[in-house]
Nucleic acid binder design. Structure first.
Lengths: 334, 334
DNA sequence: CTGTTAGCGCGTTCAG
DNA sequence: CTGAACGCGCTAACAG
């Protein structure tokens, strides 16, 4: 493997000059530059990422810190990120978070003196101390679905999403509307499901319907939870005619439960999900669309921008939520 | 950020000693080791990956070279890999390949003097020259779905899979069975679809059915292709009663086409897919199950093993394919 | 516009 | 068992 010294020798210049043409810093005479370029070409020289990272104190890569990469919603986002970064030469490093320990560990990595050039943090809110460490490290992360005004972020109005989903059901004439959501996540403090839940309650009240405690259930994220909670709902003396789930994953569980007890959707029961993950379209699930893939794409763009611009002026972009009406919602039976 | 020097000072030892306890190389007196350990702890010292990479000539990470990360099958594999690596401290770097240029570029990275500790290469077959570069670099990659006897690999018998899927249809009584597959991919030379296709033909002949050229169609990978090719099939004077697609993605396209012309599945037409991607279960698609997620998990295990064991003894593991019968296949109409 | 020099943080000889 | 010194490949002042 050729090093920068080999290139310098071959081109008859000093290493600094090679470094300069490599990084397009400073002025290099056209002719000299060309000599260097051909030397690089002839030697098939490629700078060593590690050696470069050392003096630069940063790693040429974009780290993506994402809890539960295996969730469909996370997958969609990572896809968007990878796509958005494809035309750069920045490798994408996935930092999966499943336990709280992972989180602080990865935060440390991001704020270490060998931080990545860019970072995207999904659904995780660092402490103030951690935030200032980011600043100290010169890191300019982009947050997805996290309320961090100090930095750039891409987010949706979950409360409004809760209202939208519920309103759709209300508009169809439902009043016995249940809500199934994620349990409050104490370990990571995700807030979106809670906000959607609140939106649900507010929409109901605005329509003059008092939210039934019996109709509101939460549990750990997952299809199975959706299924079980739906069964509880269905076993009620006066079961709901519609269910609004705070994620498609849970909504699918609800559909399974309905099928298991012989209920037809939307004839006997309406179901609305949240996110519009890929499967939703196939299942004909009516859902509140959350532009997941697009959020990844956007995050990638912001990261690129922040890498170029040392100013790191935080940008806040809100993505629109909208109800995608498909075939799991209809009017309640008379 | 504390460096190894700070730790050494605090512990009252030389940096060498710190390095030794860090890497568990050489003997260090119990007491000295403890002093170092507490110093590390007190300073919250974390070795710099970049600085470490330089003398070691390798990056502490596992690179995953995967074409078209956005394909559902690739996603499943990456999930398996990330999961399998979760309990190590090895970051996963995604190297997406969409153009041929990406491929050689990433291969170069893997065989550079700053190679990653581990590598997983999906569906891509390097040239002999590239292979020997891997050897020279001391890299010991794990291949997924690629026929590379020199290294460890995880694979399935695609030909047999083609037979299995076709046989299932044959067993149900179909004889007018069509095949829809991927066009031969000249850029990357993927072979699985071709092998499945061959299995289809062989199964048919073994059953005394001569494969109809009209019934065999290929096109670029994708749902849309499946849909269009299916329409061509359906427009035939004597359309097939069953379609075997070489991927679930295409099979889904076939189902769409059937729906568009008012055909009911499996009543009017049977459909078999390949892979068993997540959506398949939801759609009730009968398919030849390819353990994608598991292959990623396995690949992660092998990589870990190879990192530990410098011998790098290649291992070859074949994964079993099986038909998952769901609701898109049935007997042909009388 | 270009070259010299001193590190970046760590591993690794080789002596003690 | 421990330490001193050198080098990994590159960037960044600082001179010229």
């Amino acid at each position: 493997m050729a090093t920068i010294i080999d290139v310098a020798k071959r081109a008859g210049v000093a290493v600094t000059t090679v470094s300069r043409v490599l990084n397009e810093k400073g002025q290099v005479k056209e002719e000299t530059r060309n000599r260097v370029l051909t030397a690089i070409d002839e030697l098939a020289y490629r700078p060593s990422p590690a050696a470069r990272s050392l003096p630069r104190r940063r790693v040429h890569a974009v780290s993506v810190l994402v809890p539960f990469v295996t969730h469909p919603s996370a997958v969609a986002r990572v896809q968007g990120i990878v796509h958005g970064l494809r035309d750069t030469d920045l490798p994408v490093t996935i930092l999966d978070v499943e336990k709280p320990a992972h989180q602080s560990e990865h935060f440390d990595t991001l704020s270490s003196s060998f931080r990545p050039e860019g970072a995207i943090i999904v659904s995780l809110v660092p402490s103030q101390a951690q935030l200032s460490r980011f600043v100290d490290a010169g890191l300019c992360p982009v947050f997805l679905d996290a309320d961090v005004p100090e930095f750039s972020r891409i987010f949706v109005d979950d409360h409004k999403g809760g209202v939208l989903g519920t309103q759709h059901l209300l508009d169809l004439g439902h009043t016995r509307i249940a809500f199934i959501g994620d349990m409050e996540n104490e370990t990571f403090g995700f807030e979106s499901s809670g906000q959607r839940h609140k939106g649900y309650r507010d929409a109901l009240r605005a329509a003059g319907v008092e939210p039934e405690p019996e109709y509101q259930r939460t549990g750990p994220h997952g299809r199975d939870t959706g299924r079980m909670l739906a069964h509880e709902l269905l076993a009620l003396p006066r079961p709901p005619t519609a269910v609004f789930a705070s994620s498609d994953t849970q909504a699918i569980g609800v559909m399974e439960a309905a099928r298991e007890v012989g209920l037809r959707i939307p004839h006997d029961m309406s179901v609305v999900g949240f996110d519009d993950i890929e499967i939703a379209a196939y299942l004909g699930l009516t859902t509140v669309r959350h532009p997941l893939y697009e959020s990844g794409l956007l995050a990638a763009e912001l990261v690129i921008q922040h890498i170029k611009d040392p100013e790191c002026a935080p940008q806040s972009v809100e993505q629109k939520l909208e109800v995608i009406v498909r075939s799991t919602t209809g009017r309640p039976r008379a």
